[in-house]
Design a binder for these strands. Structure first.
Length: 259
DNA sequence: ATGTCGTTCACGGAACGA
């Protein structure tokens, strides 16, 4: 079974590439982030033609997540129970479902913006709620994973230049402690292999030729429980998908499982 | 170069988020 996560930065803008990528890779389950569309705008029909059911939590211009599956889609739960509001609203940043033998979450963790911004406190609260919401499945015997854009680089090796990130979000001890808490709950980081260069970056800013210069970060993560992690036969970043015109600023992370 | 994208609002280009 092939499972992947991809922040597409608008599923509408990315649809031709998304459909081609799904066909070419034969992905069974895809966790999508930043759909940037409403439920009405979601391309259910085109995806169904390729054999995918979709579970969607999306409201419009910002955020939005989905799960695409051709191996079943049961017990769909949109949202993060107990999660914080931001400016009075529960943003669409999580959706979970059972896809065949695996229980899966697609998450888009808040960015945080600046360390002293209210969005940063919101990010940390969101992580707390996520840990509480997944604890039971993380400790369970069914293969379980949280996949998505975590907006945190787990270690200094996961950014292209640590000096650039001093005083910035994505690398702070508080954010890394939030990831550590998820690991303590029974999840482990399924680190993909890079297809080129030495580090498995998953995101490169559109600006300043970051991708050609490989000024990237690893912020799209796969956090699996023990039964999931044991079943992993391969994991890689599909950096080819970051190339060329019409690319997202994130590359897909692909995981192959023996389940 | 705050150098790129994507969306919205509203109908060209700014504002916003990432």
């Amino acid at each position: 079974m092939r499972i992947a996560t991809w922040n597409v930065n608008s599923i509408t803008a990315r649809l031709p590439r998304l459909l081609a990528w799904l066909e070419n890779t034969g992905t069974d389950v895809l966790c999508v982030q930043e759909t940037k569309c409403s439920d009405e705008q979601f391309p259910y029909d085109q995806l169904r033609e390729l054999g995918y059911e979709a579970a969607v939590n999306a409201t419009g211009r910002w955020n939005g997540v989905a799960l695409l599956s051709k191996v079943g889609l049961e017990d769909v739960t949109p949202g993060l129970a107990g999660g914080p509001d931001y400016e009075g609203v529960q943003e669409p940043r999580a959706v979970s479902a059972t896809c065949g033998p695996v229980r899966v979450w697609s998450v888009y963790v808040p960015n945080g913006r600046e360390i002293d911004h209210a969005h940063f406190a919101y990010k940390l609260q969101w992580f707390e709620a996520l840990k509480a919401a997944v604890a039971e499945d993380a400790a369970g015997s069914r293969p379980f994973a949280v996949l998505g854009d975590f907006n945190v680089a787990p270690t200094d090796d996961d950014v292209w230049d640590t000096s650039v990130f001093e005083g910035m979000t994505h690398v702070t001890p508080a954010e890394r402690a939030a990831l550590a808490a998820l690991r303590e709950a029974g999840l482990s980081d399924v680190v993909p292999r890079p297809l080129k260069y030495d580090k498995p970056f998953t995101y490169w800013d559109y600006r300043q030729l970051c991708f050609p210069k490989n000024k990237g970060m690893r912020i799209d993560l796969v956090y699996g429980n023990e039964p999931f992690s044991k079943a992993v036969s391969d994991a890689y970043v599909d950096r080819e998908e970051r190339k060329g015109k019409g690319a997202s600023d994130h590359a897909p992370v692909v995981v192959d499982l023996d389940v």
